[in-house]
Design a protein around this nucleic acid. Structure first.
Lengths: 353, 353
DNA sequence: ATGAAAGCGCTAACAT
DNA sequence: ATGTTAGCGCTTTCAT
């Protein structure tokens, strides 16, 4: 299938014409280059008859274009990233591009290596969820005129194309939703990090809590691994027994939180309300179903590809495009209106006041 | 970062040596080619001083090797596939390979296109979860000596490397587990397909049911989309109210099944037991937690890469390697020992006998 | 309207 | 032990 491949020279020779002509015809530049219709037809006929396939390697070598987009994320197996990957692949394929991916494990070292390798392979563009500390390396790529679209998080104060969601308002909405439903001791569980999206989410939560005259309770997990995270969350919840609702800042913390709550025998929706930042298909099948902030995956991918195609087509890197998308708070049973608990004065008091 | 790149000729010129020497040193063939240590040192010194990076495109063009592996699956966003992708990426990166992926949507047409495009891009090897009907195209690739490892399913009667799990016994185990726990009207919900893994799973279920002297109840969904699937499952369960346990043949059917059961107000673990073929992290957090057949993702990826590295290193395609791995039945609460239902004679009878 | 030919950067067979 | 050089297949400038 690959060894006896014809070259453009073979086609030209058989036709008694030049490689130039064949090249022009193959690349659709025939008209523009004033090739006669007769010749065009002859070339096209032979090409399809012999099922000639241009050697993409030679073409890439010659032009420097690889029709490849580098997709760099923390971990491809995370549903958010693989969901984005799905849509990116669809759009990219439609434009003749393919996706080269690698996971950074959110490590600066690994991220730098991937960036370098993909750069050496001459990917035409990058789509990156930026690992901590890789700002300068990415800066270099951007200044070398290769299109880069950041997503999920960005570099504050740094000029780049990006597609984000409105993290601050999304988190604030979630907090307000809990406040409106009668909760007052609302915790926010996030990770210890500099990543912009996590900081924005925390800020949104804090603003909403302050505005309501409540006291923020923020737990930052120094993420070392799943079991440590679960233990830390459990310990946190045990130490702060007044907490009546929790917002988890990302999907893996939601998972760890579910585990911690189960260990503590806390009944979700009864003992404690919860909201997950990031929706997962399964969350709606839980009993009780779990309220979540859903990111618009397809729309994020659409915007990323739109920017990329613009950059690749217009060959300009000026006027950075910054896109911020809204999220959808999927209200389910885990955050329903607060029931007065048994220990606290029940209806009697309410009636009496 | 990319424009002012040095070439091997620049290095050679500055050193007053030849490109051959530089090439040999760079590619670690210096000793083998009897280059003097002095020269080796001089070359290496200048290379690192100037931070020379060989042009991967030129190298690929020249050698025909791209250090790229094509990873073709139904849908990258499915947890099973993105989980495999994670480990494949890890192992491949460690060997200097990168992963080009695309989803086929299990369409023969789309699968054929991806195969062709990846082939034109000269990927060094393929890892494929085969779409229905693409057998002949894959056959061509295999016979052209490009390493191909199939996984998840295979082509019965066709010689190829593959890594599978023991689908038949896994499904049989799940059925036996339900039988042992007192269930007798055990249904199997799968999709209408020719895919080997689904057929094997169905066969395993049927064998176990027959061996126990029970009657199989198989529902094959003609998968058109999520909502249709949910409706079909709900209708099926309603029509067969005698069913006391269900095995779902893959993770998306498990999801659809959960939705259907919720619609019918069936309490899992009480009204109906269930087992999921394919584990998902969340299944253990459900109340009740859901029993599942867990595939060894990392081990599958390991085996795939082992075969691939062997093929790529030894440059032989002979003696196909067929690997079948065991699964783990994660027993949780959704399939616990059957409680006698209220309509049926309760303890009194047991006591009386 | 068409062709000749240079050259992208690298590898490796073939000198010496 | 090291250098010379011929391509790999393609695009594109410059002739004609």
């Amino acid at each position: 299938m690959r060894e006896k491949r014809l070259s453009i020279t073979d086609i030209a020779r058989q036709l008694g014409t030049s490689t130039t002509t064949v090249s022009f015809v193959i690349n659709g530049k025939a008209r523009e280059k004033n090739i006669s219709q007769v010749l065009i037809d002859r070339v096209e006929h032979l090409v399809s008859e012999l099922n000639y396939q241009p050697n993409a390697l030679a073409k890439s070598f010659r032009t420097g274009k690889t029709m490849t987009i580098g997709f760099i994320v923390d971990e491809i197996s995370q549903p958010f990233f693989s969901g984005i990957a799905k849509y990116i692949d669809e759009k990219a394929s439609a434009h003749g591009y393919n996706i080269l991916f690698s996971s950074t494990k959110n490590s600066k070292k690994r991220g730098g290596e991937v960036l370098q390798v993909f750069n050496e392979r001459h990917v035409d563009a990058f789509i990156i969820a930026l690992p901590n500390g890789l700002e300068n390396e990415v800066r270099k790529v951007i200044s070398s005129e290769i299109p880069v679209v950041l997503f999920d998080r960005y570099i504050p104060g740094f000029e780049s194309d990006y597609v984000l969601i409105d993290n601050e308002n999304s988190a604030a909405d979630a907090a307000r939703h809990l406040i409106d439903n009668g909760y007052s001791e609302i915790a926010f569980v996030t990770i210890e990090t500099d990543q912009s999206q996590m900081l924005d989410r925390t800020r949104g939560y804090e603003k909403a809590i302050h505005t309501a005259g409540l006291k923020p309770i923020v737990k930052k997990i120094n993420y070392q691994g799943k079991s440590e995270s679960i233990a830390e969350i459990a310990e946190f919840l045990k130490q702060h027994s007044q907490i009546d609702a929790v917002v988890f800042s990302c999907n893996y913390l939601t998972m760890d939180g579910l585990d911690a709550m189960r260990q503590l025998n806390l009944k979700i929706g009864e003992d404690i309300a919860m909201v997950s930042f990031d929706d997962l298909e399964v969350l709606k099948y839980f009993v009780p179903s779990i309220t979540a902030i859903a990111q618009p995956l397809e729309e994020i991918a659409n915007q990323i590809m739109e920017i990329l195609m613009y950059r690749l087509t217009n060959n300009t890197n000026k006027n950075k495009i910054k896109t911020v998308l809204a999220t959808q708070l999927e209200i389910r049973d885990s955050s329903q209106f607060k029931k007065s608990s048994d220990e606290v004065q029940p209806e009697a008091l309410t009636v009496g006041k």
